[in-house]
């Protein structure tokens, strides 16, 4: 499954980071790399973006970008 499909409170491990260009590099730089644990915190009130927790901090990204990140619960 992909990162955007996690429910609030769910934790998962990143399997692969897809996508391309600056956005993908930014995700890698922020620590979203394979074998990292992430937890879904919440979806923004208007339905997008999402807030996740990883490496001890909170990060927000858009659903369309989270779709490129494959995770495994």
């Amino acid at each position: 499954m992909t990162l955007d499909q996690l429910k609030a409170g769910d934790s998962a491990t990143i399997k692969a980071v897809g996508g391309q260009g600056p956005l993908r590099l930014r995700l890698l730089d922020m620590g979203l790399i394979p074998r990292t644990r992430v937890t879904m915190r919440k979806v923004a009130p208007l339905g997008d973006p999402i807030e996740i927790h990883l490496r001890g901090y909170e990060l927000t990204l858009r659903k369309e970008d989270a779709k490129n990140i494959e995770v495994e619960i």
Partner: peptide, 11 residues
């Protein structure tokens, strides 16, 4: 062209 990615820390 590409808008800057919106990947932002919530401190």
């Amino acid at each position: 062209g590409q808008p800057v990615p919106f990947v932002m820390e919530l401190p």
